[in-house]
Simulated scan of single mutants.
Amino acid sequence: MLMPERVKYRKMHRGRTKGRSKGATSVHFGEYGIQALEPGWVSSRQIEACRLILISAVRKSGKLWIRIFPDKSVTKKPAETRMGGGKGDVDHWVAVVKPGRVMFEFSGVNKETAEELTKQVGHKLPVKVRMLTLEEE
C-alpha cells in the first residue's frame, strides 16, 4: 500500500471537502485520464485496486501514471472503547480528491478499451469519475 515514509505530524484534522481541484485538471502524460467529478477520500487500498486493473490492461503496450498519493492519515479508536483517552491510532492513509482532479493517466490502449477500464475503475472508487482524452484540452 502507498503511504508516506515520514510526516511531520502523525495525526491530522479531517478538513473540508469544498471547492474544485487547484491543479492536475487535464491530461499531461498519457492519452487518457480518469477524472473525479465529486469530492472524497480515496484510500491507499482503493488506489492499489485501480492500479491492478489498469496495469493488467496496459502492461505490454502502454504506460500508467498515478497522479494522486495518500498523504493524509485517518485515525480510528478501537471498537467498544469508552469516550476520552485522546485521539485514536493511525488506521489508514487517504488521498484528498476534489472535483476536476485527474487521478490516473494511461496510454497504449484503444478508445473502447479505455472506456471499459474507466468503467471498471469507477466501480472501485468512492467518487464518480469520467474519462478524459488528450484531444479534449
Rank of each mutant, 00 (worst) to 15 (best):
Gly85Cys: 11
Ala114Gln: 07
Gly85Thr: 10
Lys111Phe: 14
Pro99Asp: 09
Glu115Phe: 06
Lys111Pro: 08
Lys98Tyr: 08
His92Gly: 09
Val96His: 04
Thr113Lys: 09
Thr113Cys: 03
Pro99Thr: 02
Val90Asp: 00
Met83Ile: 13
Gly100Ala: 12
Val102Lys: 03
Val97Glu: 09
Gly100Thr: 05
Asn110Met: 09
Trp93Phe: 14
His92Pro: 01
Val96Ala: 11
Val94Cys: 07
Ala95Glu: 03
Asp91Leu: 10
Glu105Ser: 06
Val109Gly: 04
Asp89Ala: 14
Gly88His: 07
Gly86Glu: 11
Val97His: 00
Thr118Trp: 06
Phe104Gly: 01
His92Gln: 09
Asp89Asn: 14
Ser107Phe: 01
Gly84Asp: 08
Asn110Cys: 06
Gly86Lys: 14
Glu116Pro: 09
Thr113Asp: 00
Lys111Glu: 11
Thr113Leu: 05
Asn110Arg: 12
Val96Thr: 07
Leu117Cys: 10
Thr113Trp: 01
Lys87Ile: 14
Gly88Phe: 05
Pro99Met: 13
Val102Ala: 02
Lys111Thr: 11
Ala95Ser: 15
Phe106Glu: 04
Asp91Trp: 14
Val90His: 04
Lys98Pro: 08
Lys119Asp: 15
Val97Ser: 06
Asp89Thr: 11
Met103Ile: 12
Glu112Lys: 09
His92Lys: 11
Gly108Met: 02
Glu116Ile: 06
Ala95Ile: 12
Val96Ser: 11
Arg101Ile: 06
Glu115Cys: 08
Lys87Pro: 05
Ala95Pro: 11
Phe106Lys: 01
Ser107Ile: 00
Glu112Pro: 03
Thr113Pro: 01
Val97Trp: 02
Val96Pro: 10
Thr118Pro: 03
Pro99Ser: 13
Asn110Ser: 08
Val102Ile: 13
Phe106His: 00
Arg101Tyr: 04
Val102Gln: 06
Val96Tyr: 02
